[in-house]
């Protein structure tokens, strides 16, 4: 058990470290820019927000820029973490099965005494490597960075946000995994998963406060709210449970589909 997860996970270490370093640097950049930004605009800072096109403000969940918590919740976490990192996991998961089939590597893998379910689940589990790397490096960068620029932020809330976003990212990966099992070519799976997730993300944020708000319920981004966590210290554990259930359901669907699939 777990030989495949360990094998695949080992080969993800370098990529995960690069991604974590890039995302950590990105977070530090945001943090270091904030003092200049806040101090140059002073009390008028939220007037800038009013100048944002409404759709843009909604899309990136901008509630307030007057506090570093509000600033990071929208600029770093909603845009950088939920959207970009979410898409990264959907893309990475979309490659898991389809690439092996496309490159005809799946034959050798399936000739081993392993079940189809094992292949799907352990490949999915190998994404724990980038997930762990990103979820450790980025919060450390944020907490240390904000302290360094003298705009300290609650470490508890940052850690909580990262913990609450783990099932969000696994749900994004789950969408990619299902695409990977459905498509025969990796590029199709990747485009499908990334396109769907981006569509859901923008649909959810733009439909908020409209008659179609209900439609956003199928988007994973509905169930994690960086503003609530960082600004108000509210942890919506019920929403987290929805994401955990969604992840399990997507992985189960991928297993079911892969067990029935003819590898050609």
């Amino acid at each position: 058990m777990l030989e495949l997860a360990a094998y695949e996970g080992r080969h993800r270490v370098r990529g995960a470290l690069v991604a974590a370093a890039a995302m950590g640097a990105f977070a530090l950049l945001y943090v270091f820019v904030y003092p200049t930004f806040a101090e140059s605009l002073g009390p008028q800072i939220d007037q800038l927000l009013e100048a944002y096109p409404d759709a843009l403000a909604k899309a990136f969940g901008v509630q307030t820029l007057a506090s570093i918590e509000g600033y990071l919740a929208s600029e770093l976490y909603t845009f950088g973490w939920l959207l970009i990192v979410g898409l990264y996991f959907a893309y990475a998961a979309a490659s898991l099965v389809a690439t092996d089939i496309e490159r005809e590597r799946m034959d050798v893998l399936l000739s081993l005494p392993v079940s189809r379910a094992t292949v799907v689940v352990e490949k999915f589990a190998s994404l724990a490597v980038p997930l762990a790397a990103l979820s450790v490096v980025v919060p450390v960068a944020v907490v240390v960075g904000t302290a360094a620029v003298d705009y300290p932020i609650s470490a508890t809330d940052v850690v909580a946000l990262h913990l609450l976003s783990v099932p969000y990212l696994t749900t994004c990966a789950g969408i990619g995994l299902v695409a990977s099992v459905l498509a025969d070519r990796a590029s199709v799976a990747q485009r499908g998963a990334v396109g769907l997730l981006a569509g859901l993300f923008f649909a959810e944020s733009l439909l908020t406060d409209t008659d179609f708000e209900g439609l956003g319920a199928v988007s994973p981004s509905r169930y994690v709210d960086p503003n609530a966590v960082l600004i108000d210290g509210e942890y919506a554990l019920g929403d987290t449970a929805v994401l955990v259930a969604a992840t399990l359901a997507l992985v189960a669907l991928a297993v079911l589909l892969f067990r029935r699939k003819d590898i050609e």
């Binding site: 080969h11 005809e104 590597r105 034959d107």
Partner: peptide
């Protein structure tokens, strides 16, 4: 043991 026509590895 299985040997495909053109074995492929990562």
């Amino acid at each position: 043991g299985y040997l495909p026509a053109s074995p492929a590895f990562d």
